[in-house]
Design a binder for these strands. Structure first.
Lengths: 173, 173
DNA sequence: CTGTGATTTCAGAAATTACTGAAACTAATG
DNA sequence: CATTAGTTTCAGTAATTTCTGAAATCACAG
């Protein structure tokens, strides 16, 4: 497939973002390409378009499926697997955030919990240190439980809250 | 300085987090150490405690100052620079989020804007592609402007909104 | 069961990123 | 102004991560 300038720019920047967001450049590029393309693509088409190794494309597709960002489909009369990305931006972001939460914050919280218990039990640890570990734990805990509540709200409600922006403050007396 | 088990665990995990969050392991470790320690430390103490090169400690301290996470202080009768981390968890997180926003989202938004204009102007780009680039742009734009508004609210208001959790939904009819 | 096309695995290569240590620099002190 | 304690720079090295390509595996049609 031939990419237009803007598609190319989008894919390249998304690739850069990816490497800052815990997926490799090529995973993010494959995702960007599939996001921009509405028709399902098969692996060889991706290989040609992005000029990366066929095997790498396989790995990327697998990882993206793990993130729930793409799904496999089949085209009538074609034996090859085809892939199609979630097209809804909100859904895309939700899954990315959800994935990062599971991969980063859940383990962080477990470690912090453990540090906290350990610090309190251990008499050689300065209570002030235990207190600071506790403060960090509580913060992360509060953040994740806030997130867990809010993400379950119906999407229109969240959208509305967002468009209200700072105006939500008026409800806090 | 001798680290207790829980301090060590905290510092090591924070280091791992760092490498996923766009700073090197050692930057994050230095930050964790200073966060846990209330007294200002000088570079040699950090070098010994974390067993990393003196020069690397210098670089880490510089970067952390760039993030606004630590500041230099001086101890009476000691010529050496000492460093003290922000102890308030909320402040720590605010600065990290703020830094990442500037480093990642602001440039992303600029690229998306450019892609969008380019895609619309260019007749070879499928309008559906332009539409998807636009959708991504709008999403990121809405997100950042929501963030810009909310972060300016007084902290107690934000705290209150967070403890309300999903209950904010009741204000949306 | 066999042959063909598609996919996955994995060891090594390449690229990227982080770290070290020696040398250069800076500034306070006597 | 020479000495000394402290800091920074930077070129080279080490570690890590990512990518490639050949080989193995899989799965379906005939």
């Amino acid at each position: 497939m031939k990419l237009s300038t803007s598609m190319e720019r989008f894919i390249l920047h998304w690739g850069e973002m990816g490497s800052r967001w815990g997926v490799s450049r090529s995973v993010a590029q494959v995702h960007a390409l599939l996001y921009l393309t509405s028709e399902p693509l098969h692996a060889d088409e991706i290989t040609d378009t992005l000029s990366i190794a066929r095997s790498n494309v396989s790995m990327c597709l697998k990882e993206l499926q793990g993130w729930g960002l793409i799904k496999m489909t089949h085209v009538m009369g074609d034996r090859r697997d085809h892939f199609r990305a979630e097209q809804d931006v909100w859904e895309v972001m939700t899954r990315i955030v959800e994935g990062r939460k599971e991969r980063e914050f859940d383990p962080l919280l477990i470690t912090l919990q453990r540090c906290q218990e350990e610090a309190r039990a251990d008499s050689t640890t300065d209570p002030a240190v235990a207190q600071r570990i506790g403060a960090m734990h509580d913060f992360v805990h509060d953040m994740t439980s806030w997130y867990d509540q809010v993400r379950k709200l119906p999407r229109p409600v969240i959208t509305k809250l967002m468009t209200m922006g700072a105006k939500v403050a008026r409800f806090v007396s």
